[in-house]
Simulated scan of single mutants.
Amino acid sequence: MKVLSMLFRPISTALIAAAALCASAASGFAQQSMPAQGHALTPAQRAEVIGLIKQELVQDPSILRDAIAALQADDQASQASAQSKAIAGSNKALFHDAADPSMGNPKASVSLVEFYDTRCPYCRAMRPEFAELIRRDPDVRVIFKDIPILGPNSVIEARALLAAQRQGHYLALQTALMSGSAETPTETYLSTLATKLGMDPVRFIRDMKDPDIASRLAANNALAQALGVTGTPAIVVGGQLVPGAVSLEDLQKLVAGAKAS
């Protein structure tokens, strides 16, 4: 259905024009069948136009393929333009929120923002890629925006991370949660992790329930929606939004492009 809607959206221009071109080869069609500008086609003329369209599509199916490809390209370009404007309008919230956890050089010339969920397997795959990127390039920073979209356990872990941040252990807990076996994040399990990482477990559990942390997560979700983020991971770099997990090589290309611009 999506393909059909994409095809017929511009039918009054692209396909009617194609039909008129076909008709110009037919004897007298241009003079007899096409109405003056501003007048609707008669039923007979419309049937003749549709007949020509069908005939051309049967004889040359590439017309349909090219039309769909052109529409998809136009939609993608429009979406990219809209996202670029949204990113520019959210620059401060994306790259200059002092409350956001991050890794790498705080004064780096290029910052990447990752919207992620701790329980997303593709987000987990990005952890070593980001670590290696920063090891190879000390002029890069990765900013983390927790958006727990995969259920209640994701929400609990996101709260735990922001609570751990208050004790300076965000990245340590992130590593523990995302390199493990995705255990159910019970209070006992999280308290044990907090203790192992050198945190005050009582304060940690108390902070998890702080309304301010819930507000931060809500703000992250609102920002993600404003940018058109539809899943995790989603990476913002150099004025563009890149959906899905990407390789280290692709990350390096994105960073190089951002530096060049």
Rank of each mutant, 00 (worst) to 15 (best):
S5C: 12
N221D: 15
L177C: 08
S261A: 13
V202L: 05
R9Q: 11
V155W: 04
A182D: 13
P10Q: 01
P10N: 06
N153Q: 08
Y189V: 02
G104R: 06
R124L: 09
E48L: 12
G168Q: 00
H96L: 13
V142C: 11
A67W: 11
A164H: 04
D200F: 01
T188L: 07
D146Y: 03
D60I: 09
L161D: 05
S247A: 04
A82I: 10
M34P: 07
G28E: 12
S62K: 14
S154P: 12
V58H: 10
R159C: 05
L7P: 08
A234P: 02
N153E: 04
A23E: 12
F204N: 07
P121R: 14
I143V: 11
R127L: 15
Q37A: 15
E56Q: 15
D117S: 03
A14Y: 01
R65P: 07
I205K: 11
N105Q: 05
R135C: 04
D207W: 01
T232C: 04
R216P: 00
G198T: 03
F8K: 09
V58C: 01
K107C: 08
L133Q: 06
G89N: 09
A194N: 11
F8M: 06
S247K: 05
A23C: 07
T195K: 13
R124W: 07
G238W: 08
Q79Y: 01
P43G: 03
L52H: 07
A19T: 00
F95E: 14
P201S: 15
V255W: 01
T232Q: 01
E129R: 13
N91D: 14
L171Y: 00
P61T: 02
G168F: 09
D207R: 09
L162P: 04
F95W: 01
S261C: 06
V3D: 15
E132F: 12
Q59C: 10
L112A: 09
I16T: 03
V229P: 09
V113P: 05
I50L: 10
Q76G: 06
E129G: 00
E183K: 15
S24L: 14
Q45V: 00
Y189M: 12
A164I: 00
A88H: 04
Q72W: 00
A86N: 03
T195N: 06
L112T: 06
L223C: 09
M126E: 05
S261T: 12
D210E: 10
G180S: 02
Q83N: 02
F8H: 11
K145W: 07
A77Y: 05
A20T: 09
Q240G: 15
G151K: 05
H39L: 00
K253P: 01
A258Q: 11
L190H: 11
A40Y: 03
T13S: 03
L217E: 02
D75Y: 05
R9N: 07
A245N: 07
A245Y: 00
Q225Y: 08
A245W: 02
A40F: 08
G257R: 14
S111Q: 10
T13D: 01
H96T: 12
A23M: 13
L197C: 10
V255A: 04
L241P: 14
V229E: 04
R216Y: 02
T230N: 04
P43S: 07
S27V: 14
P211T: 11
P138H: 13
L150C: 04
S84L: 02
